[in-house]
Design a protein around this nucleic acid. Structure first.
Lengths: 219, 219
DNA sequence: AAAATGCCGTACCGTACGTTACGGTTCTCT
DNA sequence: AGAGAACCGTAACGTACGGTACGGCATTTT
């Protein structure tokens, strides 16, 4: 993991992208058997090419994490006319999208890898996952929260604190349970329901009178 | 990992406990270099003894997880006279204890290990962590919530759902950030403050008129 | 006291895997 | 068409590590 060529995620040939997709597929299905030989066989390429393109195993894994991160860019949810209903809808969509991401097999496998490497060396995989996961969604939600506050729909002192409460209401214990192997089935219906519940609870905590969800949702 | 002797956590000699503490120390400080040779050197014992006592490497790791789990048993918080203040105090103590546990270096290292193994084989480390962490605390908090409901202090339909909201408000994104290597300093003061905030937010969501924390705490 | 048991330290074995090397084939450029 | 690069498939090498065997020392048992 010293000085690898490390192509910067933008300058990846289709062949190399196919290799990284093969790595993702291996991570998801087998669970841990991401050996260089297995990758080469799965991607139908030679190990020599793997080392030429990605330097070493760490470079390949890092490139895989970056590659997946570059694929999960989502919309920005900024809207001009922000009334209570629109704010609630945006929060629900954010929550549903977030739940979908963290419960996807790819995300689970990738986070497992990053967490496993986070303990060993000065690996930056964990930082990459955080930057493209938790922090990226924060930077996209917080402007929405600020807009809601400016519109008088919600009230809080610190945007970061409010957002962390929101993400707590959305995620709860889902991610850690999935990472530890709990068979937590999260279908589309549950995701929509949980997202709406989280948004309504958020309004109960931070909403002003003008916002929806003032009634407690003791579901 | 087949049929290991697997001493049942209670019948551990002091020598064996010292070995497991050595494993924990290695997990925490080195991060991943928990090799049988390293454990033997650290604990000043022979590898032969490791295999005699714990069967194989999986048995050693499983015993370590159980050993750590047996050390974090906490009080049961059941009290007879349950008024609003006592319920709030108990919830705060639960939250603070939970935050202390999940932010401790030992818990972080152990969860990293369990998560790393959860992907590879049919490892039960993740299940053990869940049983002794997330689920154990749930079984201890839910009676308290039920008692609070019986006393008319809080209201909800499903205890499990209410508890999951509580744990979401308490933990938020702390655990995943720590697991991914984020330098999230969580001192005693922050833990107490976050625990109180989570408890008050929980009362805002689920409290009846008789409970404290009815005012929104937009901190 | 002699035998036996338990355990430490170390050497050893087999395998898995990261990494390198190389022959043969396909694609590219002129 | 021919030269050269890129690349596939596979073989080979070195190391790390899980697991086993054995000699020597200490403590216990008879």
């Amino acid at each position: 993991m010293m000085t690898s060529p490390q192509p910067s995620s933008e300058e990846l040939t289709a062949r190399q992208q196919a290799v990284l997709d093969a790595v993702l597929a291996l991570m998801v299905e087998e669970g841990g058997d991401v050996t260089m030989t297995a990758v080469a066989r799965r991607a139908s390429c030679s190990k020599e090419s793997l080392y030429k393109w990605f330097g070493d195993r760490d470079g390949l894994l890092t490139a895989t994490v970056r590659w997946q991160a570059s694929k999960v860019r989502a919309g920005n949810y900024d809207r001009q006319k922000l009334d209570a209903s629109a704010l609630r809808d945006s929060l629900i969509r954010f929550a549903a999208n977030w739940l979908s991401v963290i419960s996807s097999p790819t995300s689970i496998a990738l986070n497992r890898f990053a967490i496993g490497e986070a303990g060993t060396r000065g690996s930056n995989l964990g930082a990459i996952m955080l930057a493209n996961g938790r922090f990226a969604i924060g930077e996209r939600v917080k402007p929405l929260l600020d807009a809601g506050r400016d519109a008088g729909l919600i009230a809080f002192d610190d945007t970061e604190t409010a957002f962390r409460s929101f993400i707590g209401l959305v995620g709860r214990d889902v991610q850690i349970r999935l990472l530890l192997g709990d068979a937590l089935a999260l279908g589309a219906a549950e995701i929509e329901r949980d997202a709406a519940r989280a948004a309504d609870q958020f309004f109960t905590l931070y909403g002003t009178g003008a916002a929806p969800g003032r009634n407690k949702t003791n579901a």
